[in-house]
Amino acid sequence: MTQPEVFADATKAATGSPLIEVSHVDKFFGDFQALKDINLVVGHQEVVVVIGPSGSGKSTLIRCINRLEKHDRGRIVVDGIELSDDIRNIQEVRRETGMVFQQFNLFPHLTVLDNITLAPRQVRRVPKVEAEAEAMKLLERVGIPEQAHKYPGQLSGGQQQRVAIARSLAMKPKVMLFDEPTSALDPEMIKEVLDVMVELAQGGMTMIVVTHEMGFARAVADRIVFMSDGQIVEVGPPEHFFTNPTEERTKLFLSQIL
């Protein structure tokens, strides 16, 4: 089986022009090195799934992309803006980047509608009526418009995660980061969240997804990145990745989870 060369090269975008460029990034937590010389380029409309054993630095990587964690060495450029210590740059990158967390992190004291409209109104200064109309459209899209006036605590886990996705989309981000979005969900709710993510990917959203859902990775990913011990071990399209991995560590990992 021949694989297109470009898909196996982490430093080139698989589709479209580069949107995110991560080059030579190191990250330390005290003495522990969480990321070691990470290089990754993600193109417009590309879906990259990051897999790997726990503690391999997957979450740290995507948390560096919107500066929830500060990288210690190397460069991260998002949509032409380099993440530096300049707070304006950071804020600009955060506005362009949506993030969905494992624990949803919805705001429990606000209704679903207020959760979604908060950032557009506060950050983008969208008028209330407009923001609410947009929020209802997004709730429609994730399939729960009838929950608009409830509080997060009144929803199921799957519904909460769908609200969290809608909340991120409300900022009209150029890229969506997913940090194990289904790991805290009961099995019967995983599908409803994955369905939304599949729809999103098909709609042309650029996505970086940290997940253990191999079915999702196989179906949706343009490229799969396998990480271990803070390093990118192997990159490739799903068909290559699941049928014919080259690295020993990848084979070992896949044999453990498949």
Binding site: N66, R95, M99, F101, N105, F107, L118, Q122, S168
Partner: peptide, 22 residues
């Protein structure tokens, strides 16, 4: 929980607004 502040930050809210509103 820390996640609350992280979610607000990730949405682009300034530290001041994230404290005041969330």
């Amino acid at each position: 929980p820390r996640g609350q502040e992280e979610a607000a930050t990730a949405l682009g809210l300034s530290p001041f607004k994230s404290m005041l509103l969330i």
